[in-house]
Design a binder for these strands. Structure first.
Lengths: 211, 211
DNA sequence: TCCATATTGTTAAAAATTTTACAAAAATTA
DNA sequence: TAATTTTTGTAAAATTTTTAACAATATGGA
């Protein structure tokens, strides 16, 4: 894995993983790039190219073993390692996240939520406790957590990101409407919902223009 | 706008819009592509190329008028047109969405939520009523709604998507863990949260490998 | 076992995207 | 007002990504 893998490839990996999971559930134990291509609506060539960034998982004349490929992609994605997470913001979105990732998603365990409103402390969401934000640093000193989801408005997210990285957080799943400025060794994965909705809006306009 | 605009460009538009909004708030009334480049961490050239897909909004020796460019991009994105929306699923995520888009986001008005659990009917979220899912078709017959957000598990989202498009919905904001199969003239914008988290996980592994 | 078929891994070609470079034009300064 | 500076819009070059093509190889059937 010496060569730098392009972002486009990485973005597609979880989708392969999802389809392979579905195949497993269907009891299918082997699949060719062409058949997968038909299901996923991408070219067979792209599937083979993407996978070969990480190794030759297939076999000529046979295709890919579903269970094996599923495991391999899982490993590449770091699934099954058990990653502790915290969620900043116990509002609707924070609660949705705290419930969502438990939906069977592998290895990601939400250990706690933090909220600026101290009145929420004592409650729990999906069996994860809610603490006041003031206890953030103390908590991180005593618990092995690398990932934090930021589910608070942009007015406070920049400040909180600073506190998180200062306290040792290595990856931020950012739902706030702001591009976070973090040290080089910290990863940020953005989910800008309103930008996604605007994209939908653009396409809606553009499509209706066609008629 | 005869030429087909690439997906990459469209994805970047909302981000330009966001930064221009910030500039407006800061009271800055003109900006060059180079200055914006510094803020957004993209090349000035890309900014100019992107904008010129839609027209020459700038002026040599001056740059871009912030208010004007903000408006123009807003128009391109269809902002301010007032789009009615419904949300399928009144769980945590559906409620988060119903609250979220109201956060000042322009023109998108959530008129109602629908849930398979009829006991939720009668409640309201952010002043939008919750109806039983069985009333979906009746509701869409009597209300002008083009956009639906799907916030239910994949076990039911395929079926619901069929009902939505049959009832005239033109765009689906899909939060379910499934690629929806819809007619050609219907737009789908996916938000696959667990795939986003896996991407983060990949990067976390990859980064730590570097050390 | 041998032959026809299937299918990968990979190289090469094509297409798309991004960056560079610069002429044209407006703004600012002297 | 003229000269200098700034900055766009865009053509061309460079890079990246995707698709096509195919030799190598395994499978499955006769």
């Amino acid at each position: 894995m010496a060569e730098k893998i392009s972002g486009a490839v990485i973005t597609r990996l979880p989708r392969y993983y999802r389809y392979l999971g579905e195949l497993l559930e269907e009891g299918i134990d082997r699949i060719s790039s062409r058949e997968l291509s038909g299901r996923m609506k991408v070219t067979a060539s792209q599937i083979r190219q993407d996978l070969n960034n990480f190794g030759g998982f297939g076999q000529q004349g046979y295709g890919y073993n579903v269970a094996n490929l599923y495991d391999e992609i899982g490993k590449i994605l770091g699934i099954g390692l058990t990653q502790n997470m915290i969620v900043i913001g116990a509002g609707h979105l924070g609660q949705a996240i705290a419930n969502y990732t438990n939906y069977g998603k592998r290895g990601f365990v939400i250990k706690a939520l933090f909220d600026i409103n101290p009145d929420l402390a004592g409650y729990s969401v999906n069996s994860a406790p809610v603490y006041p934000l003031s206890k953030l640093e103390d908590y991180l000193k005593e618990n092995d957590v690398k990932i934090a989801a930021i589910c608070i408005p942009k007015t406070h997210s920049g400040e909180v990101a600073k506190r998180l990285t200062a306290a040792g957080i290595k990856a931020i799943w950012n739902f706030s409407h702001l591009d976070l400025d973090v040290p080089d060794d910290v990863i940020v994965e953005n989910v800008h919902l309103s930008e996604s909705l605007m994209k939908l809006s653009y396409k809606l306009n553009y499509e209706s223009e066609k008629k």
